[in-house]
Design a binder for these strands. Structure first.
Lengths: 340, 340
DNA sequence: CTGAAAGCGCTTACAG
DNA sequence: CTGAAAGCGCTTACAG
């Protein structure tokens, strides 16, 4: 029941009548050793379940075999499955490489948890799961010289980043909506969250791009950004409905959830009276009735790619500076053509 | 830009003309040292930003200052916010004690990630975020003699556990529903998920208890368990509606989400035609229209308490074997009295 | 109160 | 091909 003292490399060496050096080299595969010796070592450690102590190994090599992943800790729910999924993707990829994942919860204005972990020298690299326009996390890591990659864009060519092309995805979505009868005749309204989050800006860029490409002037007055309070969103939706909008485009799923609830309460039919679309596809939207048109950004894959990139950087292999992953536009009922 | 070699305890000792022993003791506070020496050390390490290498410290003390938290990795969405929240609670509590959190994704039938981490000796203890009737994780950890605590119940008095009283909570919920006009006259139907998950069993125990206390025979034929496929759930809901049930009690939020969608598609009014309640309160339910009656189990707090318990165990302090946290019954529109 | 030395469990030049 | 020894950056009996 008590944790039995683990068998060490010295035990193995002694039992086999060889030096620790030999055992170490047999296991790591570095340096020349005779087939025979190696086999003896392998046989012994198999049988006695010897497992090298990774921490000690790390200390000797000045490595930790740990990655840190920094994720936001706010109570926003809609977007959360994204981080959870990304986390799982990272963990699986890291585990396969015998690395482990240290969790770290960071706010835009409080990166103390990240600082602690890095200053304690507990990780070989960091993955940032959310990027900010002024990113204190990235600035800190650059200052410390810690390898890191971002799941998301950062306006800094020196940073290794992996992202979906949110700009393009939103352009596609809006272009599609504008092509619809109501999207063309009746105006669209856009509801976006915190502007300090890079992805929110990218989405807006994409929206603008759609109008630009079609040569339609962009209705600045119908772009709302920095929305945080439920009340604010409610007010805007009500007003927009009165003014007769053709569609509501939500830049994130928390906003979309609120909008859907509101429309239900107001007995506004989707898509008959107004279309609804969102820029991220959490299961909530798919399970909604009607299903909501959205853009799908596979989060596990994003996490896995980030992890691979970071590992390459740590191992000093070459890695791409910026990788864009494919997305998918999911056209569903909420933007079906109305009764015309 | 390059990660500067960190300053070590030897550097400090040398600079101050004292021994490493003295520096070490000044910092740890163990052993006697003169005020003056200590102050000199403190001043120096402040100024030069010396941070002890936690890994080396750990090696010397046979500790890692890491906790592992094992969470499920299946694609079930409804319950996910729970794990995410618990994780955040754990991380914050651990960080405050200078511990870090290693993530580990485990399935009921695949605990290889946990095995790797434990065998690599990378953690001082483990928190299990989901418990199974036959729990391979707990069995493994007990065998290895690794301290662990479960967020959830386990039928094993030797295990340290923290949980909400799901049984009692469900009893209260069902008692309430049975007290309603429709709950009393019209039958209730119960939809539950995988039976290998302990909490699902506890919930069923609670439901039975409610009937028992009221002296009403429990309608076994309306208790469905082990539901996994959407189609299955849909079939049961349709049939139940035809048979005329008064309320649908969902044992978890994934099921509840499906049920709500289905009812919407079938244009069945909640609560006018049928009541709906769920045994866990994710934001989805609160944002639903109508808001859904549910039981609230604060997950961050659960995580935090688990973490504190585990730290106590690791530090060999005494800790409670089993801690029950309070829940809250949230009565909302979805179970309001009908027009009667 | 302070220090020299051994030790935590590995790795890795350097010799042989 | 193999080993003795030093080292990774700490801690902690044991002496003084």
């Amino acid at each position: 029941m008590n944790r039995e003292k683990n068998i060490t490399i010295s035990d193995v060496a002694e039992a086999l009548g060889v030096s620790k050096t030999t055992v170490s080299r047999s296991i790591s595969g570095k340096g020349r050793i005779s087939e025979e010796t190696r086999n003896r070592v392998f046989a012994y450690i198999q049988e006695h379940h010897y497992k090298p102590n990774v921490i000690a190994k790390g200390l000797a090599q000045s490595k930790t075999f740990n990655l840190c992943v920094a994720m936001p800790g706010d109570y926003a729910l809609g977007e959360l499955p994204f981080f959870q999924e990304a986390l799982i993707g990272i963990q699986q990829e890291a585990g396969a490489a015998e690395y482990d994942v240290l969790l770290c919860v960071c706010q835009e204005d409080d990166i103390s948890a990240l600082e602690r972990i890095v200053e304690n020298q507990k990780v070989d690299g960091v993955i940032l799961l959310r990027t900010f326009v002024e990113d204190a996390q990235a600035a800190f890591l650059a200052r410390q010289g810690v390898p890191f990659v971002t799941a998301g864009t950062l306006e800094d060519e020196t940073v290794f980043q992996v992202d979906h092309d949110h700009e393009r995805a939103c352009r596609e979505l809006v272009t599609y909506l504008l092509s619809k009868e109501r999207g063309g005749d009746l105006p669209l309204v856009f509801l976006g969250g915190r502007e300090s989050i890079v992805v929110n800006r990218k989405r807006i860029d994409g929206i603008r791009g759609a109008y630009g490409a079609l040569g339609i002037p962009f209705p600045e007055e119908r772009l709302y950004r920095g929305l945080v309070s439920d009340g604010e969103i409610e007010r805007i939706v009500r007003r927009s409905l009165q003014e007769g909008v053709g569609g509501i485009v939500c830049l994130d799923d928390r906003i979309c959830t609120l909008v859907l609830r509101l429309l239900r309460q107001l007995s506004v039919a989707v898509p008959e009276q107004v279309m609804v679309a969102s820029c991220y596809d959490s299961a909530i939207l798919e399970n909604n009735s009607p299903a909501v048109t959205a853009i799908s950004f596979p989060a596990r894959e994003l996490g896995a790619v980030c992890c691979r990139q970071l590992l390459k950087r740590i191992e000093k292999e070459s890695a791409g500076r910026r990788i864009l992953l494919p997305h998918k536009l999911l056209l569903r009922e909420s933007t079906k053509d109305g009764p015309a």
